[in-house]
Design a protein around this nucleic acid. Structure first.
Length: 274
DNA sequence: CCACGATCCTGCTAGC
DNA sequence: TGCTAGCAGGATCGTG
């Protein structure tokens, strides 16, 4: 599932390929539900002629800024990939949206599970209103030890629920939540407000380390993630707990367990997570 | 405020 | 071997 590192890697790739390219046409609209706030006809009439200025990550969303002041926004959800290919490359049966651009390129949204979504906003204000209601602080660019402390202290629910709540901290999903909780030696079902200042700082450091290492490894490709060039990452070879039930904890050797916390499969080490 | 369940989808896998 | 039922999960919405 694409989380912050996977989305960041993809956004960087798109930002190498797309700025300066002009949209020629919209194609492959076989799954209209993928267009969350526009009809296929609206997109086909408004996009051609617009030039892509830049790509960047917003939480788990990818934003393509356009020269008319609007933007496209993508959410990959579980199995979506955004790929840049030469024009005319066969799409495969799971490509549900594409735009062709100048320079004989094509941007494709490939998503077997069809959960992914595409938004078009005519102005950045419109986009900001949308995002403001959905994404909070960026864990790498905006969150500080102090702001994490403050979020934790105001929240009585489970620690893992807080990490997964995009309105508070934007970008962490199930896999990296488990990995950073393991790194910090904290149990997922702890009440967020029960963390000591020392534990909160440990969580902050773990968050920075886990996310930035995963970006360096170009993301976790357990099943679906590919970068904009169609290449997998390598972080799946460096997971400590996620998906490793029955195997020994790399830190203390105790057997890793799986249970459900906050409605999500949760892998943890009962030996070193308290 | 918080927990829990349902929904959307299809590929994969556990189990018969 | 072949089939099927059930699981997985990000975001959102509804209920307790």
């Amino acid at each position: 599932m694409p989380e912050l590192p996977e989305v960041e890697v993809t956004a960087r790739g798109l930002n190498r390929h797309l700025p300066g390219r002009q949209i020629r046409a919209v194609g492959l609209l076989d799954w209209p539900r993928m267009l969350a706030n526009r009809t296929p006809e609206e997109l086909a009439s408004v996009l051609p002629g617009q030039t892509i200025l830049a790509a960047r990550r917003r939480g788990k969303y990818i934003e393509l800024k356009l020269d008319t002041g609007g933007c496209l926004l993508f959410h990959r959800k579980m199995t979506g990939n955004l790929l840049v290919t030469p024009a005319g490359t066969p799409g495969g049966r799971h490509a549900h949206f594409s735009i062709s651009t100048s320079g004989e390129r094509e941007l494709r949204f490939v998503d077997p599970r069809k959960f992914g979504r595409v938004y078009y906003f005519a102005s950045l204000e419109e986009e900001e209103d949308f995002l403001r209601a959905r994404i909070g602080l960026d864990p790498l660019a905006e969150l500080t030890e102090q702001s994490l402390q403050s979020l934790l202290s105001r929240r009585k629910g489970r620690l893992k629920s807080l990490l997964l709540d995009q309105r508070l901290i934007a970008g962490i999903g199930n896999l990296y939540a488990d990995e950073m909780l393991w790194e910090a030696g904290l149990a997922a079902e702890r009440s967020a407000s029960s963390l000591s200042p020392k534990e909160a700082d440990r969580l902050y450091a773990a968050m920075q380390a886990v996310l930035s290492r995963a970006i360096e490894r170009r993301g976790t490709s357990l099943s679906d993630h590919l970068d904009a060039d169609g290449l997998p990452g390598s972080n799946q070879d460096h997971l400590n707990v996620y998906g490793r039930a029955g195997q020994p904890c790399p830190r203390c050797g105790v057997t890793i367990l799986r249970r459900v916390v906050a409605q999500r499969g949760t892998w943890y080490c009962p030996g070193c997570q308290r």
